[in-house]
Amino acid sequence: MHWYEKLNQYFPIEEMKSKEHMETLLKEKSDIYHKDEGPNHVLMYVELDSFVFIDYLFVSKDARGEGLGRKLLDKMKRKEKPIILEVEPVNYEDTDTEKRLRFYKREGFEHAQRIGYRRRSLATKQINEMEILYWAPNNEPEEVIFEAMKKTYDMIHTYKDQHFYGNSYQPVDEVLTYNEKDNERENILEDL
């Protein structure tokens, strides 16, 4: 099965980039946008000097529980840069969301409680809320993660969006918010 089909079957439509978008990123942004693919996994990621952003991480059901996800994350951790990713909030009707969060918590990821992420899906026209998780090898603060997310949104998520989707995503300042006050949102990893 083609790598895009694996991702497309696993991730919800509102989170998926088009195949053309992803192939263009791999071609035109090949210095920063990468694909790591094997028989049982697909890892799409962005690597810049100061951070790594995991765009998609898929491990086939057949290989779950064998440590493949951990090995892929360990490979990213060896780069000694903050690792950032977006996850769906827990959906108790979809047991995969809770399993996914437990996995990232075991791997040392933290929830960026000060960062809000709300984007209108060009596919469904619905507002899609995501949570930001990060691994910070040098205890980088959430402000650093926020700036990295803004850069990722502008460089990757909205890259040629008008061309690929016939419409543009909202500007980054409408999608990503940062709360500097101490009234942080609930930690989604706390009770796992």
Results as ranks from 00 to 15, higher is better:
residue 179 N to F: 04
residue 90 V to P: 07
residue 165 Y to V: 01
residue 11 F to Q: 01
residue 127 I to F: 13
residue 84 I to G: 08
residue 151 K to W: 06
residue 109 F to I: 00
residue 70 R to M: 06
residue 41 H to F: 04
residue 97 T to F: 08
residue 102 R to S: 14
residue 167 N to V: 13
residue 19 K to R: 08
residue 9 Q to S: 11
residue 47 E to H: 03
residue 48 L to Y: 10
residue 19 K to N: 10
residue 103 F to M: 08
residue 154 D to P: 07
residue 37 E to S: 05
residue 139 N to S: 12
residue 164 F to K: 01
residue 182 D to I: 11
residue 40 N to P: 06
residue 127 I to H: 09
residue 56 Y to K: 01
residue 40 N to D: 15
residue 103 F to T: 05
residue 149 M to L: 14
residue 145 I to C: 00
residue 146 F to H: 13
residue 59 V to F: 02
residue 32 I to V: 15
residue 164 F to P: 04
residue 191 D to Q: 12
residue 187 N to C: 05
residue 37 E to M: 00
residue 47 E to M: 12
residue 101 L to D: 07
residue 162 Q to E: 13
residue 142 E to M: 01
residue 159 Y to A: 07
residue 108 G to A: 04
residue 102 R to M: 14
residue 153 Y to H: 09
residue 131 E to M: 12
residue 48 L to C: 13
residue 46 V to M: 11
residue 112 A to F: 12
residue 1 M to F: 07
residue 184 E to V: 13
residue 65 G to W: 00
residue 110 E to Q: 14
residue 110 E to I: 08
residue 93 E to L: 13
residue 12 P to M: 09
residue 137 P to W: 11
residue 176 L to P: 02
residue 89 P to L: 08
residue 112 A to E: 08
residue 156 I to D: 02
residue 2 H to P: 14
residue 40 N to C: 07
residue 159 Y to Q: 03
residue 35 K to D: 03
residue 64 R to W: 02
residue 96 D to Q: 11
residue 89 P to A: 10
residue 82 P to E: 12
residue 38 G to E: 01
residue 116 G to P: 07
residue 181 K to M: 04
residue 88 E to L: 07
residue 8 N to K: 13
residue 68 L to E: 10
residue 188 I to Y: 03
residue 87 V to C: 07
residue 14 E to H: 14
residue 164 F to Y: 06
residue 175 V to N: 11
residue 130 M to Y: 10
residue 115 I to V: 06
residue 178 Y to G: 05
residue 18 S to T: 12
residue 27 K to V: 12
residue 11 F to L: 00
residue 39 P to Y: 06
residue 22 M to Q: 09
residue 26 L to M: 09
residue 163 H to P: 01
residue 12 P to N: 02
residue 130 M to V: 03
residue 78 R to A: 15
residue 62 D to V: 12
residue 85 L to G: 04
residue 80 E to Q: 15
residue 156 I to F: 02
residue 74 D to M: 08
residue 124 T to M: 01
residue 175 V to L: 02
residue 49 D to Y: 12
residue 14 E to L: 06
residue 163 H to A: 11
residue 11 F to R: 06
residue 130 M to N: 10
residue 167 N to A: 15
residue 173 D to K: 12
residue 47 E to G: 04
residue 29 K to L: 10
